[in-house]
Amino acid sequence: MTDAPSTTDPAPPNNPAPLLDLPALRRAELAEHPYRWAELPHTLNDPDGRTARQLEAEFPTQGFQLTERTDHGAEKTYRTRNLPLITHGRPVAESRHALTPLWQRLVDELAAPDYRAAVAQATGRRLEHCTIEVRAVRYGPGYWIAPHTDRADKVVTQLWYFNSQWPADWQGTLRILGSAAPDDVTAEVAPRQGSSVLLVRSTDSWHSVTPVAGAARQDRRTLLLHFIDPTADTDTGTETDTDPGRRGTRADGGPVDAFQQADATGRSEYPGSARD
């Protein structure tokens, strides 16, 4: 499977203009059914698409850790590869060193008060007390996230996509669900380059990512941000990822801890959360 973008442009000139189109974000109109969410086709300040293409070309490649739970008895199963960029509101130094200057600028804008204020205005949620968690996520063939609602402390989630080509037969779509049933589909969002999705967490905010097809010639590339309420009672959520007794299965069929995370060499060292 190749992992190169379909087009490359010369690097844009040095431009201090913001990468994020915060006015467009503030104007976002959220659907109310089956819960509050929105698909935003244009969230980058990028009229000619050049910045989106450069972000795609420079999407991180190193340092990703495999995170999976494949036990079908679990409430939520998944397989993704994750690179933490901001954890507990703080940049992850090891990851930042691997980012290009353009990606560093984007991460800095996500950590800034103006972005937080724009999301608060769009969603109507108070976010000033929240910390942020940001990570880059890669979905290879067969990777997925089963239907779930987010933990109760994940107040708002925003995702951005970085695939200029994503044919329908590659699958790997975000599904907005009306219930825990995987076929109770209200809307389906393909990971189109430069587009974004806002999700306001509730007890009914069911969603999933369908398995990426074996025919996919690129990883599905996502930037994922959560606003985390440190005072929330996570026992009210539907996920039980914090339970150290939950166990999944290795590729060879043997048991693993629920949070076993391994890189390509099989090591399981990364302690951070990769929960969606």
Rank of each mutant, 00 (worst) to 15 (best):
181 A>E: 14
175 R>G: 02
127 L>N: 08
182 P>L: 03
140 G>A: 15
169 D>M: 04
146 A>N: 11
149 T>K: 08
160 W>Q: 12
155 V>N: 02
173 T>Q: 14
135 R>S: 10
163 N>K: 10
155 V>W: 02
143 Y>G: 11
165 Q>C: 11
178 G>F: 01
187 A>G: 02
159 L>W: 10
166 W>L: 09
159 L>F: 11
152 A>N: 15
153 D>R: 12
138 R>N: 12
166 W>A: 08
159 L>T: 12
169 D>V: 03
152 A>T: 13
178 G>W: 00
127 L>Y: 05
147 P>R: 05
151 R>E: 13
147 P>E: 06
165 Q>F: 07
149 T>H: 12
144 W>F: 15
175 R>F: 00
138 R>P: 01
161 Y>N: 07
128 E>T: 14
187 A>T: 07
151 R>F: 05
152 A>G: 05
131 T>M: 12
170 W>K: 03
148 H>M: 11
163 N>A: 12
145 I>E: 05
129 H>Y: 03
132 I>T: 14
155 V>C: 06
149 T>R: 13
166 W>V: 07
189 V>Y: 09
128 E>N: 11
168 A>F: 06
186 T>Y: 10
184 D>W: 05
156 V>G: 06
141 P>G: 04
168 A>W: 03
181 A>T: 08
182 P>K: 05
171 Q>K: 13
149 T>F: 01
171 Q>R: 15
152 A>C: 03
129 H>P: 00
184 D>L: 07
164 S>K: 04
141 P>E: 02
182 P>T: 08
127 L>D: 05
172 G>R: 10
147 P>Q: 08
157 T>W: 01
178 G>D: 13
175 R>I: 00
185 V>L: 03
137 V>K: 01
185 V>C: 01
164 S>Q: 14
163 N>Y: 11
144 W>Q: 10
177 L>D: 03
156 V>I: 13
140 G>K: 10
137 V>S: 12
161 Y>T: 04
157 T>A: 15
148 H>R: 07
128 E>L: 08
189 V>M: 08
182 P>D: 13
129 H>F: 03
169 D>W: 07
129 H>V: 00
183 D>H: 12
141 P>W: 06
133 E>C: 00
174 L>A: 04
139 Y>L: 14
128 E>Q: 14
132 I>L: 13
182 P>V: 09
140 G>Y: 13
176 I>T: 04
163 N>F: 11
139 Y>V: 00
184 D>I: 07
150 D>V: 08
167 P>W: 04
171 Q>V: 08
158 Q>T: 14
164 S>M: 06
127 L>C: 07
179 S>V: 11
133 E>Q: 13
143 Y>L: 00
187 A>C: 04
165 Q>P: 01
135 R>K: 12
130 C>H: 10
143 Y>R: 01
181 A>W: 00
176 I>R: 08
133 E>S: 12
161 Y>P: 01
174 L>F: 14
172 G>I: 06
182 P>I: 06
175 R>S: 10
155 V>D: 04
146 A>V: 05
167 P>E: 06
146 A>Q: 13
171 Q>A: 13
175 R>C: 09
187 A>D: 14
132 I>K: 10
169 D>Q: 14
127 L>G: 04
182 P>E: 13
151 R>M: 14
